[in-house]
């Protein structure tokens, strides 16, 4: 069972959550003028790393709040949890 530490409710079963995918993706400026390739890159292309991944999660069956999670995609270990308006934290000894 994978436990995710909701910043409000504490550790809960992963089934209470909805994963919102990769975090910190910025909508490009001038969306009506950029070409299709740049738009597709924003819309579809994700890092899919083997290692640290910065994700958005929603506690769908709990407090229904969004928050950020840093997860190791190899071990599913969760290394940090932080609020939506916070900058991604550095994980000592690890690089994304």
């Amino acid at each position: 069972m994978l436990l995710i530490p909701c910043p409000w409710c504490g550790e809960r079963d992963v089934h209470e959550f909805h994963c919102g995918g990769e975090a910190h993706i910025t909508r490009p400026a001038g969306a009506d003028t950029i070409d299709d390739a740049a738009w597709a890159d924003y819309l579809f292309m994700r890092q899919n790393p083997k290692g640290l991944y910065y994700e958005r999660w929603n506690h769908a069956h709990g407090c229904r709040k969004w928050f950020h999670v840093v997860r190791d995609t190899v071990s599913d270990q969760i290394l940090a949890v932080y609020q939506m308006d916070e900058a991604p934290p550095d994980i000592p000894g690890r690089s994304s």
Binding site: C9, R12, D13, H15, E16, G62
Partner: peptide, 10 residues
């Protein structure tokens, strides 16, 4: 209090 899943029901 907890909002959680009981037998898959919220």
């Amino acid at each position: 209090v907890a909002q959680t899943m009981l037998a898959k029901a919220a």
